[in-house]
Simulated scan of single mutants.
Amino acid sequence: MVKIQRFGEWCEMIVPPHWEGYTVDFIFRTIWEAPKKQIHTIRVNKQVLINNEPANWAKPLHSGDKLRFHFFQEAEFGVIPSYSEIEVLFEDDHLLVLNKPAGMDTHPNSPGQSNTLANAAAFHLQMQGENRSIKHIHRLDRDTTGAILFAKHPMAGSILDKKLEERAIKRTYIALVHGTPTKAKGTIREPIGRDRHHPTRRRVSPKGQPAVTHFELIKTYKRENLSLIKCRLDTGRTHQIRVHLSHMGHPLAGDLLYGGKPIFSRQALHAVKLEIPHPFSEEFIVCHAPFLDHPEIFKGIDAYEF
């Protein structure tokens, strides 16, 4: 674990014993896997200090050294800050995890749009006096609910992007589907591409992008002919769970776009848990997302069970 603390625009980290002998260059390039352009900018602007002196990027560090990074600079939000009632699942100086309600886009899809979760996140930071660019690390469909991760400064965003690409960030979803799968658990490995006959629909396609969904049957509701499914994603394709489960013959209840019946006002899909390796402290953060709306969809289900 790395001890971290904020001092104004600077982030201070105490070099832990297992970083003994590392260099600042090694931390940025190998541990954090930061982009070369970002590393260059930080280096030429002298935005790293060692024991309050400009850093020698090639000098070995010692346990107990004080590293300071100029991470918390003021910047344009990138979206229009706009108030919406939101539930914060986790927040520190680097990360923000929000519980997205149904009927809200993750981010603006057109200039001037201000009713998205990203707008609400920017407003949340603004009210705390944090004028910094906010970046979503992954997305949820408009009518899918649950946990979404934001980075509060560019270096956190770069590291988290890499963690997501490397599947170190774990996303767990629950879904109510029609019918009962023949297998209690399994993996769907089917590429997903656009449907040429529909502007927003996706489909399993040999020419699509690779997509991997792990699923597990949790519970069946024989009277309603529904099943509760837990899903874990290795990839994050648009509509991935909806497409894969529909392709398997078990579309989401309420998902009219992919063959579900209109028994609910939206698709029964919720991002119930998010597991995040902290980009700096090396802690492992687990966020559970309670159900905000449409309680009839996941009636009797406890989000903290997953």
Rank of each mutant, 00 (worst) to 15 (best):
A211Y: 06
K207S: 10
E85L: 01
A184K: 15
D234H: 09
I229T: 06
R237A: 11
G103S: 08
A121P: 09
R203Q: 13
R132D: 03
G8F: 03
K219G: 04
H178L: 01
P181I: 00
L176E: 07
V15A: 13
P111I: 09
E283A: 13
Q113R: 13
I229Q: 02
G179F: 01
V79T: 15
D92K: 03
M13G: 08
D234W: 01
I80A: 08
S205Q: 13
K37N: 13
E216Q: 06
I14E: 14
I137T: 14
I137C: 13
K222Y: 02
A156V: 05
T235H: 09
L95K: 07
F264R: 02
G260R: 00
Q113E: 14
S246M: 04
H247G: 05
L98V: 05
S281Q: 09
M155N: 10
M13S: 08
Q5H: 08
H70V: 02
D25F: 07
N109Y: 08
L256H: 11
R242H: 11
A121C: 07
P262H: 07
L61A: 08
T23E: 05
E165Y: 14
Y173D: 02
V24N: 03
A184H: 12
E166P: 04
K37P: 04
E76K: 12
G260A: 03
L233N: 10
R266Q: 09
I137E: 12
R202W: 06
L292K: 02
E33T: 12
I134C: 07
I14F: 13
A268N: 03
C11W: 08
P290H: 00
I229W: 01
P277H: 11
T41C: 06
K163P: 11
V24R: 01
K36Y: 15
L49K: 05
A268C: 05
S265D: 12
I174W: 00
D255Y: 01
K170W: 01
H239M: 08
H247Q: 03
L125W: 07
W32G: 14
H18M: 03
G112N: 13
